[in-house]
Nucleic acid binder design. Structure first.
Lengths: 338, 338
DNA sequence: TGCCTTATGCTAACTATGAGCATAAGGGAG
DNA sequence: CTCCCTTATGCTCATAGTTAGCATAAGGCA
């Protein structure tokens, strides 16, 4: 996903590389001559009450972030320290997302350059306290078009596609128009194309380019055509999109969901968690089949009647398999809609 | 892959998060107070004569790198400028790899902190000139155990596994010993496990931890047990491993191989290129079927007799499909050995 | 002309996946 | 105490996707 973004950014670059004034020697020598600042931004995810949540501050307008503290040996150690202090829960899984250094990122002072390194973190429980109103928000508040658990969100056909089409039509050249139409079709799965839940970032960036999100007003967007869905400050919604995309891709081949689950759980609870992240409903029997046949879990021997209906067996993860899969990576049960 | 590395690094962190002195406020405010330096490092890949090559400097001991030039709007623009100037060829595909800021990275001055942002770039032709002896090196010089095109490299069974086993046995706790054995089995595909060509980084990091690569001597490795395979300075071989791993994963679901191919080519040439990257031999007929059925290429109408044997049709990539696949991502033909 | 080499077409066997039928087993309404 | 609703769980079937080969085509060269 990050790769896709990279390619796009690049495509959007209008600068001509030939105009650059760097000397050939720059390639082969390494003496940094510009001091910059490094900042860490975290996409912290938890799933509670069947909803995927992300830790936010400032009334949901920002992701938690802060300077890279030199006292730490690594970036990750620095991040981990913050988070565990904040949430009082261990961070189960941490993964680097992307590093930005775009000058137009916070277009204040061009000479003051900030490199922003973002991370994705998974945690088991969602509770946080502190200044600046930290709160776990359901991430579909920011991306209402990404939640397909109750079918295709009507706003896609009613608002998004028409406005994107209108935007595509504004392009002067026919080739550009066609390319835009193509991107719309692919990212939103129009016509006979399927909805691909992993393209969170591509969709957000398309909406951004089309000026349909409030964050883009500085770049020519119009508040009147902005879509429903909460905005964030700076590029934090883009970072969140990157995190969601990465997580949606990851759950398919690495057992990271487990980081979000309690000690023991029913298979349906596990399924609901995956569905919450993927924004898609899965086929129950097939989900069970895959989970069991891959021996990811084992019965605890107990059952719970709290689910209503026939009592469900409780499961826990098999430590050994987890370790193995964490290194290797196998297919995990994410499939089509019911 | 990067994610895997992230998790590992973390596992290797011996610092206790509780020892940290950061204030809670750090999580929710964003005012960087430490100036650092940013450096870009590139893994530039080309395939010539059926061999995967990487651009190096300093007699193959370093990857090209240099400071992030503030004149550029984005990190990628900065990188692109360098590279195109050096190689005089357009960089087809660029993707960010990973950002390091480990303090022990170049353990000189603890107060001088460098953030190193690495990129993977693909280019069509391999020619470079400049100072510091830039040269395209076959990447298997650095990772001889990664080339399985002529079967399993004997050094794995003869040198690597015995030494890794010996290292595993040195662990005091039984649990640690078992965990090490497990990692060895999985990363090197021992027993009934298959060789997974994507685990380049995991294998290198395992060898590093075991002190079997020259780069690890500072951390307790012994030159006498170092494996064949050229080393690099700093952590450049680790960055290269990250790049190879990423590329091996990428070619399976995005048509990036095309960035490495000439205008027109035979299907076998395409296959040989994929094989060079993957370090694995593919089944010819199946490879053809997949490439053709996915309509990735189209016949140019010409044939070449230069391949020996029956003349082969020449193909070129279908522009439209490429664009679509670049956004969407579909399965590409990488399969098992012949 | 026959053999070697690479190209290319086709298929049988198997595996993975998507969908759905059918039964099991609590809880609560009547 | 039944019936019915709900969720749990077992199984089967059809199909798409893969893997591994067999077989034929078509140049070059001894």
């Amino acid at each position: 996903m990050a790769g896709a973004m990279a390619a796009w950014h690049d495509g959007a670059d209008t600068e001509n590389a030939a105009r650059e004034s760097a000397q050939p020697g720059n390639l082969v020598t390494a003496f940094p001559d510009h001091a910059i600042e490094a900042e860490l931004t975290a996409v912290l995810v938890a799933v509670t009450d069947g909803e995927p949540r992300v830790l936010t501050i400032d009334e949901g307008r920002l992701l938690p972030s802060g300077p890279f503290v030199s006292a730490h040996r690594t970036l990750q150690a620095s991040l981990r320290a913050w988070v565990e202090q904040q949430t009082h829960h261990p961070l189960g899984y941490v993964e680097q997302l992307y590093t930005f250094a775009d000058r137009d990122r916070s277009s204040e002072d061009a000479s003051r350059r900030v490199v922003s390194i973002s991370y994705l973190g998974l945690t088991r429980q969602a509770r946080a306290s502190g200044r600046h109103h930290p709160a776990w928000r359901v991430w579909y508040r920011y991306f209402p078009w990404e939640d397909w658990r109750e079918g295709a969100p009507p706003m896609i056909a009613k608002l998004i596609v028409p406005r994107l089409r209108a935007w595509a039509a504004t392009a002067g050249e026919a080739a550009v128009r066609r390319a835009r139409q193509q991107r719309i079709r692919i990212t939103f799965g129009l016509g006979d194309l399927p909805w691909n839940e992993e393209m969170v970032l591509q969709r957000y960036e398309l909406l951004f380019e089309a000026g349909l999100v409030p964050e883009a007003i500085r770049r020519g967007g119009d508040l009147a055509t902005a879509l429903p869905g909460e905005a964030m400050l700076h590029d934090h919604r883009r970072i969140l999109a990157t995190g969601i995309a990465r997580l949606r891709a990851k759950i398919k081949y690495r057992p990271v969901v487990f980081e979000l689950m309690p000690e023991s759980f029913t298979l349906l609870q596990l399924q609901r968690t995956v569905e919450a992240l993927a924004g898609q409903i899965l086929h129950k029997q097939n989900f069970r089949r895959l989970v069991e046949q891959q021996a990811l879990v084992e019965e605890t021997g107990e059952v719970t009647t709290e689910t209503g209906g026939r009592p469900a067996k409780l499961f826990r993860f098999r430590e050994r398999v987890l370790q193995e899969r964490a290194i290797a990576g196998t297919t995990l049960p994410i499939s089509r809609m019911v």
